[in-house]
Design a protein around this nucleic acid. Structure first.
Lengths: 152, 152
DNA sequence: GCCCAGTAGATGCCATGGCATGTACTTTAC
DNA sequence: GTAAAGTACATGCCATGGCATCTACTGGGC
């Protein structure tokens, strides 16, 4: 087999289409059940699971710009799900923590996502595991290379 | 093994992160080399490969709203890469075709994407093929179920 | 033929994200 | 210590996409 360029574009196409549709579907379900969208769920979940989480940490994790995340945190704070605590180690930044309502929301939203994904991902356990393994590996390589991270 | 919910969320997370970073990386490269972004490349490529392509066909293919695509086509038309031809079979819609500059652009952009992907996707041929197979299958299921398609 | 429900897509308003800039703070060099 | 360079993030402007709405056209009934 000669060229792999075709295979690469085909892979990207399937990857992007799957991601878009799953993301949209979860977005819709989260909005109707909890009044939030996926990007908010992702942020809340990251804040919950990351110790000493700052704005820049979120931005790095989701490969978004710092400015966008800062505005997103403003909105989550306004809704009463997140708090910015002064960071004793660095007064330029804040530490992000969930409020009690935020904790509850993320737990419920997580359950909603798991449920909806179980409906949509009708793959065998082997397919799921093998694909996750490959994507994890790819992801680590991209993250290590700082590939595709916006500037702002 | 009891629950698979965890596996599903993990899969989604890897899927989304890979997609975001690859998409961003290609976006950057396309912008600097050709002055377009990924969504434009996708549209141009679809117009090129879809016979009798209409706005709604593009929207369905990329799981975006019709309104957004209509505006995107406006921009591609303004740049001189796409033309809206009257659709003899239905006067409500137009048929989208590439102009000669559009054809050239998409060919060059395609090469740029293949090249960049070859740099970034350091997976074995087997991993790539197996993962593409699973994602293709998932994609077909999602498309068949009309999952994650915006309304507008 | 004529209506009426349905469809294609153009357009407006709004929310979100990118990037550039501004500001406060920290680190480094001297 | 102090000045200069660097960092964290808040903010503003702009481009894009979602959704609602509007218009034009089509495809049935009758």
């Amino acid at each position: 087999m000669a060229s792999t360029g075709q295979a690469h574009l085909g892979f990207l196409d399937d990857l992007v289409r799957c991601e878009t549709r799953l993301y949209n579907a979860l977005n819709d379900r989260l909005r109707e059940r909890h009044g939030i969208v996926m990007s908010q769920f992702e942020a809340l979940h990251l804040i919950r699971t990351s110790p000493r989480c700052r704005v820049a940490d979120l931005a790095g994790a989701v490969a978004a710009g710092v400015g966008a995340i800062s505005k997103g945190v403003d909105r989550l704070e306004a809704k009463g799900w997140v708090q910015r605590l002064p960071n004793p180690a660095d007064r330029r930044s804040s530490l992000l923590v969930l409020t009690e309502p935020g904790e509850q929301l993320v737990a419920e939203a997580r359950h909603t996502c798991e449920e909806r994904l179980a409906e949509l991902l009708d793959l065998s356990a082997e397919e799921l595991a093998a694909t996750t393994r490959t994507l994890s590996k790819l992801r680590r390589a991209l993250e290590a290379g700082q590939v595709g991270v916006p500037v702002g």
